Simulated scan of single mutants.
Amino acid sequence: MIRVLLADDEAMIRAGVRAILSADPEIEVVAEAADGGAAIELVRAHRPDVALLDIRMPRLDGLAAAAEIRLTVPETAVIMLTTFGEDDYIARALGDGASGFLLKAGDPRELIAGVRAVAGGAAYLSPQVAQRVITELAGGRLGRGVAARTRADVLTEREREVLALLGAGLSNAEIASRLYLVEGTVKSHVSAILNRLRVKNRVQAAIIAYEAGLVADVTAG
């Protein structure tokens, strides 16, 4: 069972999201909050697998709540849910350690897919957000590619293999299957990769993998 905390200051939005998630028998909403501060307290109390946070909330917004949750309860993955698709919101959310970013105007199926993905250790961006990120990366790919390859050079060969598959969107279980490893070993490799690359989460590591050309090598193979 995937345990989810839902935080949004609008009761109707919470009801709608809860209804969508309830369509999946393997997802359970264990707590709800109307502001970021309450969301942090409930995450600490319930330790959900996923915290689904609206960006704009009173008392403490979702971005600040995401940063605090990732710092104090790192085992809880964070997905940002918002009506806004501006690049600064995307950049801040991913920089604060969010594993996913979904737009409220998106397909309801994206919500379930996103929760399942981050609960499984992967990252998830709605198609609109993914396109923005890819476009931004493409704008300065050459210079960043050199920097990314330099950063990836500190990794062992096995860690580079794991990073490439992580960048391709595979979960820990899928990486383990592909490389004939146990999932616990993959988790250890991912932790080492994040530390060596000095990044906060899988999304940031995936961007480095993309910029370094590791993802292209995997997909081509």
Rank of each mutant, 00 (worst) to 15 (best):
M80N: 07
D9T: 06
A122G: 11
A33K: 10
V78H: 11
G85E: 14
E26Q: 15
A168T: 09
A105H: 14
P74E: 05
A15T: 11
R116G: 08
R160L: 05
G100P: 12
V199G: 07
Y124F: 15
K187A: 14
N172W: 10
G106T: 15
I90D: 13
T219W: 11
G143D: 12
A212C: 03
D107G: 11
N201L: 01
Y89H: 15
A105G: 15
P74H: 07
T83E: 06
V50D: 12
G36K: 10
L170V: 04
T82Q: 08
I69D: 13
R70D: 00
I40E: 13
V218T: 13
S22Y: 01
I208A: 09
S188R: 14
L42E: 15
G140V: 10
I207H: 03
A7H: 01
V118W: 08
P108L: 08
E10K: 01
D87N: 15
G100I: 12
I193D: 01
A176S: 08
L6P: 04
R149E: 04
H46L: 02
R178P: 03
A51P: 07
V30F: 04
I207T: 13
L5Q: 03
V4S: 00
I79Y: 06
R3P: 00
S126Y: 08
A122H: 07
H46P: 05
A64F: 12
L5I: 03
G145S: 05
G121I: 12
A206T: 02
V203A: 05
V78D: 13
A19L: 09
S188D: 14
E159P: 01
A148W: 00
A148D: 00
L166Y: 02
